[in-house]
């Protein structure tokens, strides 16, 4: 068993979950914006961006260098759609998640969230999308893992 490969995969999932949680933290802070939490909002937006980007880079490295054998198992197994739909959709939808995460701090830093309600709605929209797509990514990841398991059971 390649421990490095497994550690990469766990890190990808862990940073993704932490990114989603940071998104929830930012969402709540923006809903309760005041003079006291303005700095926290800036920090939370940077945290989301950093964690999602890290999850993307680690997941991407794992996908490019280690996914091949798992893909072969899934495709020859009883759940070939775990790759055909779930992995293909996940690997391409992640680009959108990355774009939103990079854009989030820009929207936060360039807005006056305390006085402008529409700006708050924009930041909440971006953050909400990051949380939803992030959760979809986590769910799809678990189906892909189950696809490998089903492929191995069938052997």
């Amino acid at each position: 068993m390649n421990i490095f490969k497994e550690l990469l995969l766990f890190s990808h999932v862990a940073f993704g979950v932490m990114g989603i949680l940071a998104g929830v933290w930012l969402f709540v802070e923006v809903l309760n914006v005041s003079d006291q939490n303005k700095t926290r909002i800036l920090r939370a937006s940077l945290t989301v961006s950093f964690l999602i980007s890290l999850s993307y880079l680690i997941g991407g490295y794992w996908y490019v260098f280690f996914y091949g054998p798992d893909k072969a198992i899934i495709k020859s197994g009883v759940w070939p759609w775990a790759h055909g739909f779930f992995m293909e959709t996940k690997e391409h939808l992640f680009f959108v998640l990355l774009l939103l995460s990079i854009y989030l701090p820009v929207a936060v830093f360039k807005s006056d969230l305390l006085t402008n309600k529409s700006s708050r709605k924009l930041v909440l929209t971006i953050t909400g999308l990051i949380i939803i797509i992030g959760l979809v990514m986590e769910g799809f990841g678990s189906v892909i893992s189950a696809g490998v398991k089903m492929g191995l059971i069938g052997r």
Binding site: L93, L100, S118, S119, K121, L122, I126, L129
Partner: peptide, 15 residues
């Protein structure tokens, strides 16, 4: 900002 929310949300959903 309001239009931007719709544009970003719509673009993401369409994609």
């Amino acid at each position: 900002d309001q239009r931007m929310s719709l544009i970003v949300g719509g673009g993401t959903l369409l994609s």
